[in-house]
Design a protein around this nucleic acid. Structure first.
Lengths: 120, 120
DNA sequence: AATATCACTTGCAATTAACAAGTGATATAT
DNA sequence: ATATATCACTTGTTAATTGCAAGTGATATT
């Protein structure tokens, strides 16, 4: 269900980088094909992990957001980022420091930001 | 790197079910092809997540074990199992209860068992 | 009215995975 | 000792998935 190359990346970047449109994913991921991105977004919607709603200020756009089920993946992604940071010298060091210093606080912070974006 | 259908399953079952031979994976996963299993095991060895050594009591066999890097994935897999249990009504309920009641203790227990198997 | 941007679809080639049938090394049964 | 079985794979071949290029229709901007 999340066992492919892109789904977890999409979720990670919605959580940690605030991505919420097709264009942001498309420009960010080198090598992702348009049809695959569309397919993954639709599947994530179908699985109930993300939701989409039209952007009222530009009706061409769709805004994607994490559902409660998606937000519950925050601990999974956090542990993944920590593991990668420990073993693969990659990623945002400031973020990793934040995760390590107070994991509970970090998790709650991300959850709250997701919820805010969803309502705003 | 872990973004495929089988790699995380293999790691999960080495951690939580004590799998350590080719045959165990082959018999357990409905639908995995022999070439794909061999490929994934080799890649996991190449990535330094698992290691293999010959079984001294039957020299046809290879025994796979998690490396330190692999054992560090325990928190990731644990969070995944918890997420799946919360949202997908699947999996070992006893295990999930254990994870929830004292996560720290559970993590240490799994790490210790992996280390024991590796030495034994 | 013309052009640009948005989130996609479609068609096709290339990559990857699944299935079936070996292979060589070792183990077991006769 | 010979025959058969089991082990961890390899080697084809077919089927499915992905990557790439070029659209498409709806909306937005100039």
């Amino acid at each position: 269900m999340l066992g492919d190359r892109w789904s977890l990346l999409i979720i990670r970047d919605m959580m940690l980088r605030g991505f919420h449109t097709y264009k942001e994913f498309m420009e960010c991921y080198e090598g992702i094909a348009t049809n695959i991105l569309a397919d993954r977004l639709h599947k994530l919607v179908a699985y109930g992990i993300i939701a989409s709603k039209p952007d009222l200020s530009d009706r061409r756009k769709l805004i994607y957001s994490l559902t409660a089920k998606g937000i519950d993946l925050v601990p999974v992604l956090t542990e993944m980022v920590l593991w990668a940071a420990a073993h693969e010298k990659t990623g945002n060091q400031a973020l990793v420091r934040q995760m390590k210093s107070d994991k509970r606080k970090f998790l709650d912070g991300v959850r709250q930001q997701c919820a805010l974006r969803d309502r705003g």
